[in-house]
C-alpha cells in the first residue's frame, strides 16, 4: 500500500528510534496526525531545542544547558564526594536515590572496552577535581558487569596515588525482595557486605 509521502517519511524517522518497531512507529505517527497543530509544533520544537541546547558539562560530563552545569555550581552539594558513573542516564538514577555529592560522567565509547585502550578513557576532568584539593572520596558507580568492573579497577589504579578514599557500590539484595529467590552470588556478596545494626 502507498501511504501519503509525508506520513511515510514520519514513520520512517520514528522507526529509527531505539525500541520503536514498524508498528509502534505507525501508531505514533497516526497519533501525531490527530493532535492539534499547536501541540505538534511544540513537540517538534522540544526535539530540536533539546538536541541543540544540551551538551556535556565541561567539568563533570553530565548533560546540561549551562556550563558548568547546575550540579557542579550548586553550593549546597557536598564537594568532597564524587560519584563516577558511565552515562548521563546513570546520573538520573543516582539522583533519584537522593545522593548529595558531585558527579563525574565518563561518557565512554563502548568500543573503548573492546579495543582494550582504557588509557583513552577521559579522566582528565576527574583528575582536575581531585587536584582541586577538596575531594575526599570517590565512589565508583560503574555497572556491575565485566566492562564496568574493569573500568572501575582501572580508575582506582589511576586515582590511587592521590590518596583519596576510593569506594565501589555494594552488591546486595533488592529492597522488598524475597530472600528465598535471590541468586547465590548476590546473596553471598550481600553476606560479605553485611552490617551491624
Amino acid at each position: 500500500m502507498r501511504l501519503a509521502r509525508p506520513l511515510e517519511k514520519l514513520i520512517r524517522e520514528l522507526e529509527k528510534l531505539p525500541g520503536i518497531g514498524p508498528k509502534s512507529a505507525q501508531r505514533l505517527a497516526l497519533h501525531i496526525l490527530r493532535q492539534p497543530a499547536v501541540e505538534v509544533r511544540e513537540l517538534a520544537r522540544a526535539l530540536v531545542e533539546a538536541r541543540e541546547k544540551t551538551f556535556p558539562c565541561s567539568r563533570c560530563g553530565n548533560l546540561t544547558e549551562i556550563d558548568p552545569c547546575w550540579i557542579c555550581t550548586d553550593p549546597q552539594r557536598d564537594e568532597s564526594i564524587i560519584c563516577v558513573v558511565e552515562q548521563a542516564s546513570d546520573v538520573m538514577a543516582v539522583e533519584r536515590a537522593n545522593y548529595q555529592g558531585k558527579y563525574y560522567v565518563l561518557n565512554q565509547n563502548p568500543r573503548l572496552m573492546d579495543s582494550g585502550s582504557l588509557e583513552e578513557l577521559n579522566l582528565q576532568g576527574l583528575l582536575n577535581f581531585i587536584k582541586g584539593g577538596r575531594v575526599q572520596e570517590i565512589i565508583l558507580a560503574t555497572n556491575p558487569t565485566i566492562d564496568g568492573e574493569l573500568t572501575a579497577r582501572y580508575i582506582a589504579r589511576v586515582v590511587k596515588s592521590f590518596g583519596v578514599r576510593i569506594t565501589r557500590l555494594a552488591h546486595g539484595l533488592p529492597v522488598g525482595g524475597d530472600l528465598e529467590y535471590t541468586d547465590e552470588l548476590t546473596l553471598r556478596r550481600a553476606l560479605e557486605g553485611r552490617r551491624e545494626i
Binding site: G116, S117, E119, L150, R153
Partner: peptide, 12 residues
C-alpha cells in the same frame, strides 16, 4: 594493549 589493562584483566 596498555600493560595496566592487561594486568587488570589477568587479575579478574
Amino acid at each position: 594493549v596498555n600493560q595496566e589493562v592487561e594486568f587488570l584483566t589477568r587479575d579478574m
